[in-house]
């Protein structure tokens, strides 16, 4: 936004679409694979390899730690306890999300949908707060993305099933150069607006 790349509903939609097909696709596959019972430690390492920006890695672990607290309180599970012990500073959020879905008795499809939706809902609500975009316009952007979001979630589940058979290299690795660069630019600001 500060760089002037998001100025209204149209550019927000373009931004969200790009994030959905890159970071969102990867997060959805990580969450789906965790929900299917793939080793979360391996998934966490795969998330690191797909997140070059140290600012984004730190943010993903912070969010993972917060989600872990809420998930363990709501759906106590030995697998969540074990992951919390393995990563005291937090595991990547999509991995925690997938494991939380598993603890809550949900499936890979649910985990993938949650992660894919989160990849676009965050930027949409931030635009409402920072640019005073009409919240209905922001919601319309999300509604228009719904069919693509479903496709991304379906493909993520497919990839996750392949991970069960062949290992974490089957995870998508779609990257978005400007998401990584902008995260570093934002981390270098003297006053930061968001942690993630």
């Amino acid at each position: 936004m500060k760089a002037g790349r998001i100025t209204g509903a149209a550019s927000l939609e373009d931004f969200c679409r790009g994030r959905l097909h890159t970071a969102g696709r990867v997060a959805a596959a990580l969450a789906a694979a965790a929900a299917l019972g793939v080793d979360p430690v391996e998934l966490d390492a795969a998330a690191d390899a797909r997140t070059p920006s140290p600012a984004l890695r730190v943010a993903a672990r912070k969010l993972g730690r917060q989600l872990m607290r809420a998930a363990r309180a709501t759906w106590p599970s030995g697998e969540l306890d074990a992951l919390a012990r393995e990563f005291p500073k937090g595991a990547h959020q999509p991995v925690v999300l997938g494991l939380a879905a598993r603890a809550a008795g949900l499936g890979a499809e649910d985990a993938a949908h949650c992660a894919a939706y989160e990849s676009v809902s965050g930027p949409a609500s931030a635009t409402v707060r920072l640019l005073s975009l009409d919240p209905f316009d922001a919601t319309a952007v999300l509604a228009r993305l719904a069919p693509e979001l479903d496709r991304v979630a379906d493909q993520a589940v497919e990839a996750a099933r392949e991970v069960v058979d062949t290992g974490v290299d089957a995870l998508p690795a779609a990257s978005a150069p400007l998401l990584e660069i902008s995260a570093e630019v934002h981390a270098a600001w003297p006053v930061r607006l968001f942690a993630s």
Binding site: R25, L178, L179
Partner: peptide, 25 residues
């Protein structure tokens, strides 16, 4: 151990948003 795994898709037929503000702008 995999240290980096990055894929970039762009151009006609690539997943949407590749030329938008999140990816290449």
């Amino acid at each position: 151990r995999t240290l980096l795994d990055q894929e970039l898709a762009c151009g006609p037929g690539a997943p949407g948003g590749w030329d938008g503000p999140a990816v290449l702008a």
